[in-house]
């Protein structure tokens, strides 16, 4: 279960929202308008179990998310869910990977401090003996144009 965000962790002016997380409960979050740029040359790598619980987080994932490793490992990947991301995007993600296919998309992630960062995410199911046992996700720096297109698109989706 993901706990609500702590307002004491937020840096700067913030807004409040309650998100209905995909296949999970609701979570109160706080977010700001401050973007943290994705660093050039780095890849965020993580794995989750079949329920989306984080089992591996590389150092840049920890750094960009703003949480400690212990706060990420064992918690659902929805800990990064930003209110500007339409739920239909995550529905599409889960539908795609559960069918054994690769999913790619531009994602706005929410940090522990309320700031956000954009990534281009690729997620695949890890199949062993014909069964999906986990998921691997790699995130990289998205292009400015891809982010601009996504901002426009996501405003039209719910």
């Amino acid at each position: 279960m993901l706990e609500d965000m702590n307002v004491d962790d937020i840096v700067g002016d913030y807004k409040e929202a309650t998100l209905k997380l995909y296949n999970l409960h609701s979570r109160k979050i706080f977010y700001t308008e401050t973007e943290v740029s994705y660093p050039e040359g780095k890849l965020i790598v993580s794995t989750t179990d079949t329920k989306g619980v984080i089992t591996h987080a590389n150092p840049i994932f920890v750094e960009m998310a703003g949480y400690t490793r212990d706060e990420l490992i064992g918690h659902n990947h929805s800990i990064l869910r930003h209110p500007d991301m339409p739920s239909v995007a995550f529905k599409d993600l889960w539908n795609t990977v559960n069918e054994g296919r690769k999913w790619e998309g531009i994602v706005k992630n929410l940090r522990k401090d309320g700031c956000y960062y954009w990534v281009k995410a690729t997620v695949i199911p890890n199949v062993r003996n014909g069964e999906i046992v986990s998921y691997t996700s790699v995130r990289r720096k998205p292009s400015v144009s891809a982010v601009d297109e996504s901002i426009k698109l996501y405003k039209t989706l719910t």
Binding site: V45, H56, K102, T122, V123, I124, N126, T136, S137, V138
Partner: peptide, 13 residues
């Protein structure tokens, strides 16, 4: 195994 999963994620379709 992790490397295999990672490369599978990285290799373009």
């Amino acid at each position: 195994e992790f490397m295999i999963d990672l490369i599978d994620t990285l290799v373009p379709d």
